[in-house]
Amino acid sequence: LHEEILDFVKYISPTPEEKYMREYALKRISDVILKLWPDSIVKPYGSYKTNLYLPTSDVDIVILNEDLFVPSCFFDLQEALLEADIVSKIEVIDKARIPIIKLVEKVTGYHFDISANAESGLHSARLMEKFIESSGYGQAIVALVLVIKQFLAQRYMNEVYSGGLGSYSVFILVTNFIMMHPCVQNKQIIPQENLGVLLLEFLELFGRHFNFEEVGLGVSLKKGAFYFRKEDKDWYNYNRPRLLSIQDIDDESMNFLINFKLFK
């Protein structure tokens, strides 16, 4: 299984040609945004920025411009993109907590999610990159994240709005699992050499044994990986006690309460 995981990661990792096509699609969309709002800054984030994306993953980009009125400005952008004839499908999601535009770039077929002035995604991507670079377990984290993302995508369990698990949460779960693993802490196993065992034990822990009702988890550059009692943070939901509770990497007051159907 370890060798199969390595082969899978190698197989789905983007080729130079695929990277070029994503960059090409990103530039086409960015050009329209900057023509419409020249004072803006357009930046990618999420799995595209951290190189944790699957071939079918969306590209997340954020427009930084304090003069924009969200979400009404997205309808102007929608009109501009349609006029430029570079999208085959486009939709403004203006009622979401963070309004976005979802679109499909016409030439490449890549899906994009566009937000505005939501800088938390940029900061989260930088923190994820730091964990991959400095934790000592970067290769194992990347491999397991990619395998689990594919596992979820094949079961339509990767869309947050429908009860799935997004990339950021998968990253925190995997990083926490590896860093908290007793055999890793005791240096009895090297994570990047035991991916098969770790994948099975990850699925066993969160699929069968984890105490979702009472316990949450998180990772931090300062504290490392940790568990916590939901009640200690006043994050216990009496109406939905089995929500998966994940603390944000950078903000200890931020809690992701996820109704993830795999864990029911």
Rank of each mutant, 00 (worst) to 15 (best):
P99Q: 15
D251Y: 03
S169K: 05
E252V: 12
G224A: 04
V145G: 05
L6I: 13
L77P: 10
Q139L: 12
G163R: 05
R242K: 13
Q154M: 00
K149T: 14
R208K: 14
G224W: 06
G109F: 11
Y45D: 11
I246E: 05
E91I: 15
N255C: 14
A225W: 00
N117R: 06
F171L: 11
V87Y: 01
K230T: 00
L198W: 04
Y45Q: 09
N51S: 11
R229Q: 14
S47R: 09
S162M: 13
K230R: 00
V9A: 05
K49D: 15
G207N: 01
I12L: 02
L103E: 01
E133S: 07
G121K: 09
Y168E: 03
Y11E: 10
H111G: 11
E193Y: 07
R229S: 07
K233S: 02
S57Q: 09
K223M: 00
V142N: 12
N211Y: 03
M254S: 14
L52Y: 10
M180N: 11
V160C: 13
L68D: 04
L203D: 03
S88A: 05
F260E: 06
K233M: 02
Q150G: 00
I190S: 07
V174R: 12
S72V: 15
A96N: 05
L195G: 04
Y137K: 03
Q154Y: 10
I63R: 03
F206W: 09
K261A: 02
D250Y: 09
Q139A: 14
E231K: 04
Y11D: 08
N255Q: 13
Y53S: 15
Y156V: 06
Y48F: 12
L34A: 00
H2C: 11
L64W: 01
K264M: 07
E231C: 01
S115V: 15
I5W: 07
I61C: 02
F112R: 06
I246W: 14
F212D: 03
R240G: 09
D7G: 03
Y227V: 03
L36N: 11
N194I: 06
R126F: 03
D58W: 05
L36K: 12
V62G: 03
P241A: 02
Q185R: 15
I258A: 00
G216R: 01
V219P: 01
N176D: 15
G166A: 14
P14C: 02
V70Y: 08
S253D: 09
Y236S: 08
V215E: 08
T56I: 14
V32M: 01
E201H: 07
V9R: 03
I249A: 07
E18I: 09
T56E: 15
V59W: 10
S115F: 06
